[in-house]
Design a protein around this nucleic acid. Structure first.
Length: 806
RNA sequence: GCCCGGGUGGCGGAAUUGGUAGACGCGAGGGGCUUAAACCCCCUUGAGCCACACCGGCUCGCGUGGGUUCGAAUCCCACCCCGGGCACCA
């Protein structure tokens, strides 16, 4: 017999919502648990990745609720941005209409999964009541000089016709569409995340419950380097500054390199013998895509025709322009020390430049540039010092000479937030020909995204074509002025949305700080590993900013982070383009949401990628059918007194409860499910013997409590049918009885020289001496000892005895 | 190149952190129920070998090779693969 999942599931979904089971408010008398699954892009349909994410999230929501926590579990929509806009372009519908349709579809699909949220707190980032506060946040950052506009070489995606943040360029390609990204000089808005680099780095150490992997990725991304910064004079006038992590090798500097975009370049090459060659090189570098420039292989460069003076010994060294030096890092100029740096070695070898070693390589070392430690050589007053001492000494010298100082350099760049696209939050700034950049007054927010005829990407923001939007008056001088037409990166929305859930309807302020003061930090944040850097770094930055302006009580937003693995099929991540998607809606229909949830919990370690197997869900459905039969069939009960068999059955139920509880706590769902299967298998055997009603009822009762966070619909249905009450979700999580859970007999394994030779059922409280005696009296063991000397006996009762014979 | 993960049956994966390797599920094979099929139930299922009427028994086996230990999937060393992150970052 098989139960009617469609009828059961839809009925319970309605009841949970009618009764508002998961609607919560601040309650200082109860411990809170703030549980957030990363809010999704409203792509229009949920996929197995969503199912996995929300199954884990909902399991935790329901479990923590049963454990007595005041659980906030909200849901919302990351509804601005390129994916939503591209989807709209493909469908031919206006982004707003299309996005809202897709939200409606996904909301109903998520409900069918049986995940419970406090829907009263639903937010959508394209809603003016939300993005108004993006704009407010922007102005707060602007007031503190943490939002600024500047012209800089930026990443430009020719297909999406917009700039991209550094973080959105993967291997020189656009993260979204895979087009090769090019550099363009454009005036763009940035958030000054680099001001927070040291704190963002240092506080990673406080994130105890984050995956090591994510923390490492963030550390690498922030990329702290210690060294020195100093000025170098150009022969015949001019100077530039360099950053180096190896100031100790300064005596080995045989040339300098400037990035092609370096501001001094123009001055250096003007009138030089190499001027035309240099200009051609700079031009070519400017037009090359990121991948071309990054392509491993020959370094290229051009001599400027000018020389610099090594400050430490007066040596005259050529100045080159080469694109292996990046304008965006350090000072855009380097001292090149080919003896100790492989890149400089390659360049020097190609262009016939001198190489001077300043570190004595270790014995037997044969290579090119030597980057290891060793005594300093060819370096006058640094000779003989090791790397550390030489660094210290030379930095002192640079300081004494007044030409340099110690410096820390981060790889992290400022966050480029301008986008030349329609579907985003307008940047609330006004360009006044007289007053310059003027912020929109707070009481004029929100600056609404205007309706436009044509929102296709054109290389400049579609908003620029809307005269009514662009033309305005300057808040400062009341003269004619124009609005900023770029929109914000969607990662701005997602950097603070989890604060807004705490006070989603506030129309006076971004939120009342008292509310997140109760809920924050997010106790459990669950989402995909693909957000390890971008979103999580931005969210940490904005939280620190909110902390600094007294809006947040915490400096770190997410106490525990859980990153789930991907679902793959045929060796690839499920995706429409690969044609390997398995639509969850089909399984809601065929097997039911509970079976699908249970399969996701069961399929493997939650952090690992998991391979989809169509038959897997058949197995979890079979299991649920079995549970249904056990709970609803009439069994032929015994009237005899309960005995050892009953105690054993209850004991297993309590051991299962202990294991399931521990496994949920440590996110080992894939071992909690098999524990329940073992219990059900055992109970199935038991009911065919001569079962006691009370024992069966009690085991089923515990089973349903344990199933309720995993497969809530069937668990609620059976709970009610068995007369336990009408709302399992609000029952307390059961406690196991340690006495009952204790095993009375265990298998004692007896080894001879580490090999298993016998197994004996023994009492669980066996002493080492008794264990040894039992082992030695085993016939099998005696056969293996076979007259040899027993050297020692290692007894680890009650599980193992090892007899060592020689 | 640097930094993280990870290699266990036909498959997904267990193994309480040094103590019975392969839980549980999928698949496969055999049997029962059934007029038949589905459902359901029972048995077998790492490899090889010995014994097979029955009980059973042996050897090997967790990427490869070494080491530590009474005992290693688990700890150490070296190597080989796979996945991910960063990467001309001075």
């Amino acid at each position: 017999m098989s139960y009617d999942h469609k009828e059961v599931e839809s009925r319970w979904q309605e009841r949970w919502e009618e009764q508002g089971v998961f609607h919560v408010t601040e309650d200082p008398t109860r411990p809170k648990f703030y549980n957030v699954c990363m809010y999704p892009y409203p792509s229009g349909a949920i996929h197995q990745g969503h199912v996995r994410n929300y199954t884990y999230g909902d399991l935790l929501t329901r479990y923590k609720r049963m454990r007595g926590f005041n659980v906030l579990s909200p849901m919302g929509w990351d509804s601005f941005g390129l994916p939503a806009e591209n989807a709209a372009i493909n469908s031919g519908l206006h982004p707003k209409i299309n996005t809202e349709r897709q939200i409606a579809t996904m909301r109903s699909q998520i409900r069918q999964l049986g995940s419970m949220y406090d829907w009263d707190r639903e937010i959508a980032s394209h809603d003016p009541s939300f993005y108004r506060w993006d704009q407010w946040l922007f102005l707060e950052l602007f007031d503190r000089e943490l939002a600024y506009k500047t012209e800089a070489p930026v990443n430009w995606c020719p297909k999406d016709q917009t700039v991209l943040a550094n973080e959105q360029v993967i291997d020189g390609l656009c993260e979204r569409c895979g087009t090769a990204v090019v550099k363009r000089n454009l005036a763009q808005w940035f958030f000054k995340i680099t001001d927070y680099a040291d704190r963002l780095l240092a506080d990673i150490d406080t994130l105890e419950h984050w995956p090591e992997r994510v923390k490492t990725m963030q550390r690498n991304w922030i990329g702290r380097s210690e060294g020195a910064r100093f000025r170098i004079q150009v022969e015949d006038g001019g100077e530039f500054e360099v950053f180096t992590t190896r100031p100790d090798t300064i005596f080995g500097m045989t040339f300098c390199v400037l990035a092609p975009e370096h501001p001094l370049v123009e001055e250096l090459i003007a009138g030089s013998e190499n001027e035309s060659e240099a200009r051609a090189y700079i031009e070519a570098a400017a037009n090359a895509s990121e991948i071309d420039r990054m392509a491993e292989g020959e370094k290229t460069g051009v001599f400027t025709g000018r020389y610099a003076i090594n400050p430490v010994n007066g040596r005259r060294v050529p100045i080159y322009i080469a694109d292996y030096v990046l304008m965006g890092y350090g000072t855009g100029a380097i001292m090149a020390v080919p003896g100790q740096d492989q890149r400089d070695w390659d360049f020097a070898t190609k262009y016939g430049i001198d190489i001077i070693r300043t570190v004595q390589p270790s014995d037997g070392w044969e290579g090119e540039a030597y980057v290891g430690d060793g005594p300093t050589i060819n370096s006058e007053f640094l000779d003989g010092l090791d790397q550390q001492a030489a660094k210290q000494r030379i930095i002192e010298w640079l300081v004494e000479q007044g030409i340099g100082e110690p410096a820390i350099q981060y790889r992290l760049r400022d966050w480029l937030i301008s986008r030349q696209r329609y579907w985003g939050c307008p940047i609330p700034m006004i360009n006044c020909p007289r007053c310059g950049l003027v912020p929109v007054p707070r009481d004029e927010l929100p600056i609404l995204l205007p309706e436009v005829e044509d929102y296709l990407p054109k290389g400049r923001s579609p908003l620029a074509a809307v005269d009514e939007f662009v033309n305005t008056t300057c808040p400062s001088c009341q003269g004619p002025a124009s609005r900023e037409t770029d929109t914000m990166d969607t990662f701005v929305d997602s950097s603070w949305y989890y604060f807004r859930y705490a006070d989603p309807h506030n129309d006076q302020a971004i939120f009342d700080p008292a509310k997140p003061a109760y809920w924050m930090p997010v106790d459990q944040y669950i989402g995909g590993i693909e957000h390890a850097i971008l979103h999580l770094l931005y969210a940490r930055f904005i939280t620190k900013f909110l902390y600094d302006i007294d809006l947040s009580s915490v400096e770190e937003p997410f106490a525990r982070l859980f990153t789930q693995g991907m679902i793959t099929l045929g060796g690839a991540k499920m995706s429409k383009s690969k044609g390997n998607v398995v639509d969850p809606m089909e399984q809601f229909e065929s097997h039911g949401a509970d079976s699908l949830r249970l399969y996701h919990l069961f399929m493997g370690p939650p952090t690992d990628d998991a391979v989809w197997n169509d038959r897997g869900i058949d197995g979890t459905r079979r299991f649920l059918d079995r549970v249904w039969r056990l709970a609803t069939d009439e069994h032929r009960y015994s009237e005899a007194e309960p005995g050892e068999r009953e105690r054993e059955m209850l004991g297993l139920a309590h051991r299962t409860l202990r294991k399931v509880t521990e496994d949920i706590e440590r996110f080992h769902f894939n071992t909690a499910v098999p524990a329940l299967m073992v219990l059900v298998n055992s109970l199935s055997d038991y009911v065919t013997e001569s079962p006691h009603k009370e024992t069966v009822d009690e085991v089923v009762r515990l089973l349903l409590l344990m199933l309720s966070p995993m497969t809530p619909h069937i668990a609620h249905e059976l709970w009610e049918r068995l007369g336990h009450g009408d709302m399992l979700a609000t029952e307390p999580w059961p406690e196991w009885d340690e006495e009952l859970a204790k095993e009375e007999t265990v298998t004692l394994v007896i080894q001879v020289n580490g090999k298993v030779r016998d197994r004996i059922e023994v009492s669980a409280d066996l002493t080492p001496d008794q264990a040894t005696e039992l082992a030695m009296s085993s016939e099998k063991v005696q056969t293996w000892i076979d007259g040899n000397e027993v050297k020692k006996v290692i007894a680890r009762p009650p599980s193992l005895v090892n007899v060592v014979v020689g």
